[in-house]
């Protein structure tokens, strides 16, 4: 954090200098209307989520006979079984590993590529941009057989890298498309100034661009994390003996002929928590955080 501010300082007005003394620590209350609208929205977005969470406290019979009812009696068995089971915690660890590595990889490779596409002029730039964009338009499920062959030939089957590397590849298009305008928005005066200060273009990228594109990087990071967290296809095909990820782990409650819905709901409700923690840690940085720095 401090490193970042130093790097950005030459071109930026210090945030503290901007008028008004509000900071994130001492926020004032907003108008009641805003909170009312906010609560209404939360009710709409969280209603179905709470329904799923509560479903985990019911039996399948209760859910079938009275879909709108509250747990009656309150059955903690599903949550208790899931939360004390190695079949939850071990996959949770794999999921965290895969999601963190994928996110780091996507953000790093993505911002490097987006920097080139946003700020270098060269022949073929349009082609490369379109190439990445085209990656969004073809469904992954169709390409799974050839993809499996690639993963297998590289010796990545049953390895974490077999999930992480393709995961990075599939998250690159969104990442690059979102980042290009963010990077383009950094004023060229800043680049010129840094060049006068003796920074190379790579130095400019490393010391100025990266710190300044915080909100964009964190946004694409969060999106990549969620995509990896819920990813099903890749771990399904890549992992055999490897501990599965959470989305695969939940399949243990679906046998050939039936599903334990209550357990599925409990398992998923619990597996949401780490992803939400990740988001709540980083959302502060999307808004606030480093931003005041860019005032060209």
């Amino acid at each position: 954090m401090s490193q970042v501010t130093t790097a950005a300082r030459p071109a930026a007005k210090a945030k503290a200098a901007s008028k008004g003394s509000q900071s994130n620590q001492s926020l004032s209350w907003g108008s009641p209307v805003v909170y009312f609208v906010g609560l209404l929205l939360v009710a709409l977005s969280m209603g179905p989520v709470l329904y799923i969470v509560m479903g985990g406290f019911r039996t399948n019979s209760q859910i079938t006979t009275d879909p709108a009812g509250l747990p009656d009696p309150f059955v903690t068995q599903s949550y208790a079984t899931v939360s004390t089971s190695a079949d939850f915690w071990k996959p949770a660890l794999t999921s965290v590993e895969a999601a963190v590595l994928t996110t780091l990889g996507v953000v790093l490779l993505g911002v490097m590529a987006a920097f080139v596409l946003a700020r270098y002029q060269f022949k073929g730039r349009g082609f490369f941009y379109s190439l990445f964009a085209a990656g969004l338009m073809f469904p992954l499920s169709v390409a799974i057989t050839p993809l499996y062959t690639v993963i297998s030939k590289l010796g990545l089957l049953d390895k974490l890298a077999g999930v992480v590397l393709p995961g990075i590849a599939f998250a690159l298009p969104t990442t690059i498309i979102i980042l290009v305008p963010f990077l383009r928005a950094i004023p060229k005066e800043l680049e010129e100034a840094s060049a006068l200060d003796g920074l190379t273009r790579l130095g400019f990228f490393w010391r100025i661009v990266l710190p300044l594109s915080g909100p964009g990087l964190i946004t694409v990071g969060v999106l990549a994390f969620v995509a990896s967290w819920n990813g099903y296809m890749l771990p399904l095909f890549v992992f055999n003996t490897h501990t599965p990820t959470l989305p695969l782990g939940v399949a243990q409650f679906s046998t050939q002929h039936s599903t334990d819905t209550a357990a599925v709901l409990a398992y998923t409700s619990l597996s949401m928590i780490p992803a939400l923690l990740f988001f709540s840690i980083f959302e502060r940085r999307i808004v606030g955080g480093l931003t005041g720095a860019v005032k060209g």
Binding site: L27, W29, G30, S45, P247, M272, E283
Partner: peptide, 30 residues
């Protein structure tokens, strides 16, 4: 800038975090 905005942001983001498979199960029951 107002109190509680972080919480609001997280709560509004929750549906995006749930996988499509479970969203489907939940909405079917609803």
């Amino acid at each position: 800038k107002m109190r509680g905005r972080s919480t609001l942001r997280v709560l509004l983001f929750v549906p995006y975090v749930i996988s499509e498979a479970i969203v489907g199960v939940g909405w079917r029951l609803i």
